[in-house]
Amino acid sequence: MAARLRPELRERYLELHRNVWPEVEATITACGIRNFTIFVTGDVLFGYYEYVGEDYEADQARMAADEATQRWWAETGPCQLPFTEGSDAPNWEPLEEAWHLD
């Protein structure tokens, strides 16, 4: 997935991620996400994670209902823009897989 940072909020976003709240990390893990990494180059973000659960939609709904995660998104969301200008995505846009090596 990819997103852009609002240049004026770039450092705020990076600071938040240097100190991710433990309860947010716990929810992410409880919802079946592993090996989650966010890469940054300039004002562009790329995110990658592996899902090991059995019901992705239900786990995503559980994460979205979590109070700490909602507060986290309220802090991080304003720092982000969709990757593609004019996109209706709130911020992160999924990427289409072009190649994968197991």
Rank of each mutant, 00 (worst) to 15 (best):
Gln70Arg: 00
Leu45Tyr: 04
Arg62Val: 00
His17Ala: 05
Glu25Ala: 09
Gln70Trp: 01
Leu14Ile: 10
Arg18Glu: 13
Leu101Thr: 12
Glu54Gly: 06
Val24Ser: 01
Val20Pro: 14
Leu101Arg: 13
Glu97Phe: 05
Met63Phe: 02
Ile33Ser: 08
His100Ala: 13
Glu25Leu: 15
Asp66Pro: 02
Leu101Gln: 11
Val44Thr: 15
Phe46Val: 15
Thr69Glu: 06
Met63His: 01
Glu85Gln: 12
Glu11Pro: 14
Ala74Tyr: 00
Ile28His: 09
Val24Gly: 05
Val44Gln: 14
His100Asn: 14
Ile33Gly: 02
Val24Lys: 04
Pro82Asn: 08
Trp73Gly: 00
Val52Leu: 01
Thr84Asn: 11
Leu9Thr: 04
Arg4Val: 05
Glu25Gly: 08
Gln80Thr: 05
Met63Asp: 00
Glu85Val: 10
Val40Trp: 10
Ala65Lys: 03
Thr84Gln: 11
Cys31Thr: 12
Gly47Tyr: 00
Arg62Gly: 04
Glu96Val: 13
Pro90Tyr: 00
Leu101His: 15
Glu11Ile: 12
Pro22Cys: 09
Thr37Cys: 09
Pro94Leu: 08
Met1Gly: 15
His100Glu: 11
Gly42Ala: 13
Tyr56Met: 03
Met1Trp: 07
Ala64Arg: 01
Ala58Cys: 03
Leu81Tyr: 04
Glu50Asp: 14
Leu9His: 08
Gly47Phe: 01
Ala65Thr: 03
Gln60Asp: 01
Leu5Tyr: 00
Pro82Tyr: 07
Trp72Tyr: 08
Ala64Leu: 00
Pro78Trp: 02
Glu11Phe: 15
Trp72Lys: 04
Cys31Gln: 07
Thr41Glu: 10
Gly32Arg: 01
Ala98Gln: 14
Asp66Lys: 00
Tyr51Phe: 02
Arg34Gly: 12
Glu15Gly: 15
